[in-house]
């Protein structure tokens, strides 16, 4: 049956690292107006991802969570090389893929794939599902004709689009949101990758169907030995699906660790506020809140020192001067906060 097998999976995890991200940065230049261009030399940047480091172990679900604009999606796109990093290293199976180009990149894409949030926008409306799912095989010259058809049918059946013979002929608009997301999974799995970046794969799917997609993801992981980088703003789902979680704020990881650790012992004030703000389906629960001042600052003008200090309920003098490093507070639990270190 479907359900959370999340407890048992910890033991199956190997310690081998599949992906290691080191000091990853992505700065997008800000477009200037004509006059501004003539008058000023200085260039400004949106620091979307600003020195992010983490590693993903083989077989785990590692989640990047945070609010909109925190850089989680950009991080995902950097890893599959849809966006080129400004600096930093991305080691995939111990090989730095930041400088990979052209032909090598195509080979690499067989091993790492991405699933996007919007199943309505990620399919070509004029391509039949069968053609879309088989397209990667054709692009990479891996299979064609009967063999391709065979593999497409098998994959569609595997993601629960049965009978596959029927779905092959359909156009994307004839599928429901959940079915389209299944098709998107089939398309990314047809190349037999080891690593999948799943960017908010269920946020546009109705609640009653979400679990089927998540459970499918977990089943496939078991069966095909996949590793996921899961990106979400929904911490309740993150808790359900992940092994480890990293919380991002303004382009940086502020806290990272085992999910049980993060949820039972959050150390960063931002994580604490975030967790308390999640609606809980229980009318008897007394709501507690941590009042955060103001709003998330712009990623162009990130505050000096700790980037969270402008909203932090426990700001100190050190926070104004020094940006806190992500340091361990207990084995496997990392926090970037001056006050957390001292306690």
């Amino acid at each position: 049956m479907c359900g959370a097998a999340s407890t048992k999976k910890a033991s199956r995890l190997s310690q081998a690292t599949i992906l290691q991200v080191e000091h990853l940065k992505k700065y997008f230049p800000v477009e200037k107006g004509f006059l501004e261009k003539m008058l000023t030399r200085s260039r400004r940047f949106v620091r979307a991802v600003d020195d992010v480091s983490f590693s993903v172990r083989k077989g785990e679900v590692f989640t990047l969570a945070g609010e909109s604009g925190c850089g989680k999606t950009t991080t995902g796109k950097l890893i599959v090389r849809l966006v080129t990093p400004t600096s930093g290293r991305i080691l995939f199976n111990d090989v730095d893929i930041v400088k990979t180009k052209h032909e090598e990149l195509r080979v690499l894409r067989r091993r790492m794939q991405i699933i996007f949030q919007d199943p309505y926008a990620s399919f070509n409306p004029r391509m039949r599902i069968g053609d879309a799912v088989g397209h990667p095989l054709e692009i990479l010259g891996l299979a064609k004709g009967e063999e391709k058809k065979e593999r497409v049918l098998k994959m569609l059946d595997r993601v629960g689009l049965a009978p596959p013979e029927q779905f092959v002929e359909l156009y994307p608009h004839q599928l429901s949101g959940g079915q389209r997301q299944r098709a998107a999974m089939a398309r990314s799995l047809i190349l037999d990758p080891e690593f999948i970046v799943a960017d908010e794969p269920v946020s546009m799917i109705d609640v009653s169907l979400r679990t089927t997609i998540i459970d499918l993801m977990l089943d496939l992981r078991r069966e095909l030995g996949l590793t996921y980088l899961f990106i979400t703003h929904d911490l309740a789902i993150a808790k359900y699906i992940s092994d480890r979680i990293a919380i991002m704020y303004l382009g940086r990881i502020v806290e990272m660790g085992d999910k049980h650790e993060i949820f039972s012992r959050p150390m960063h004030p931002y994580t604490q506020a975030l967790l308390l703000a999640i609606p809980v389906p229980n009318p008897e629960r007394k709501r507690r809140m941590i009042e955060l001042r103001g709003e998330v600052p712009s990623a162009i003008d990130i505050p000096r020192g700790c980037r969270f200090r402008t909203r932090c309920p426990c700001e100190q003098d050190t926070c104004k001067q020094e940006e806190p490093e992500l340091v361990p507070v207990s084995p496997g639990h990392f926090v970037a906060c001056h006050s957390a270190k001292e306690s």
Binding site: G3, L209, R210, D215
Partner: peptide, 24 residues
């Protein structure tokens, strides 16, 4: 009943979620 079983609750440590079969 199905909806209640399909939504994750962060306050619970271990939770089994069940989807409702089919679609609207």
């Amino acid at each position: 009943q199905g909806l209640l079983k399909a939504i994750p609750n962060v306050e619970l440590d271990e939770q089994t979620l069940n989807a409702i079969a089919g679609s609207p």
